[in-house]
Design a protein around this nucleic acid. Structure first.
Length: 215
DNA sequence: CACTAGATTTTCT
DNA sequence: GAAAATCTAGTGG
């Protein structure tokens, strides 16, 4: 039986949480009882004030304040004038660690996701193969910043998945889109998922068919 | 398929 | 004032 990931899951180093979130289910409850779900296939870990790529590198600001709080809360930020990105706060209070959710495989509510993404996106993979795309497909914006993601009435939470054990191979690489801290291999992804972002540049491994075709 | 320019606005220096 | 944890459309091979 799937269960909501508790705060103890998040209260560990971001690198561990990022790795363990691969294969978990991201659940987004919309108003009106609509539920959207997807399997997490790509994440990135961000350290606190010691990580030059982290928003917390230069200390606490109004934007990153939630990173300095307890684990198990959302950190949603807006960037490049267009896009929102979803993170979960991890580690011990004050450490300011977080994990960026970069890609997922949709498993429920695909029609609603398409609609939120503005209709056809060409290749179905384009629905959720990037941090900005996930937020658009799941209707996530800054109004969902600082949300407790360990409650079953939360608009966002993660749960354990029956699909976790389906032979996923988790690989790691340097993080994407950053200028400092590229030496750290803190990006984790399911090597066989077609939904992983930046395929072909960094990712090796075969592009398998849609995972939903599996039992 | 590979590469890049351009969009657009928040955030912090 | 500059940079940004990105995306899309467009070009060229």
């Amino acid at each position: 039986m799937p269960h909501i990931l508790p705060r103890t899951f998040y209260a560990r180093p971001s690198i561990v949480v990022a790795r363990d979130l691969i294969g978990k289910t991201l659940v987004r409850n919309l108003a009106g009882g609509v539920c959207l779900r997807g399997i997490v296939v790509e994440t990135e870990a961000y350290g606190g004030t010691k990580d030059p790529a982290s928003h917390a590198f230069r200390g606490m600001t109004p934007r990153n304040e939630i990173m300095f709080g307890d684990a198990g809360f959302s950190y949603v930020y807006f960037t490049y004038g267009f896009h929102n990105c979803l993170n979960v706060v991890t580690g011990r209070k004050g450490r300011a660690q977080a994990v960026l959710i970069r890609a997922m495989e949709p498993i429920e509510g695909l029609e609603k996701m398409k609609e939120l993404r503005g209709g056809s996106t060409g290749d179905p993979v384009n629905l959720t193969n990037g941090p900005g795309k996930i937020c658009q497909a799941l209707a996530i914006d800054r109004s969902l910043n600082k949300v407790d993601i360990t409650k079953n009435n939360s608009p966002i939470y993660f749960e354990s998945s029956n699909l976790e054990q389906l032979g996923r191979k988790v690989l790691k690489s340097s993080r994407i889109g950053i200028s400092a801290g590229k030496d750290k291999l803190w990006r984790f992804y399911d090597s066989s998922s077609p939904y992983v972002s930046h395929r072909g540049k960094i990712n090796l491994g075969p592009r398998l068919p849609f995972r939903l075709s599996r039992p």
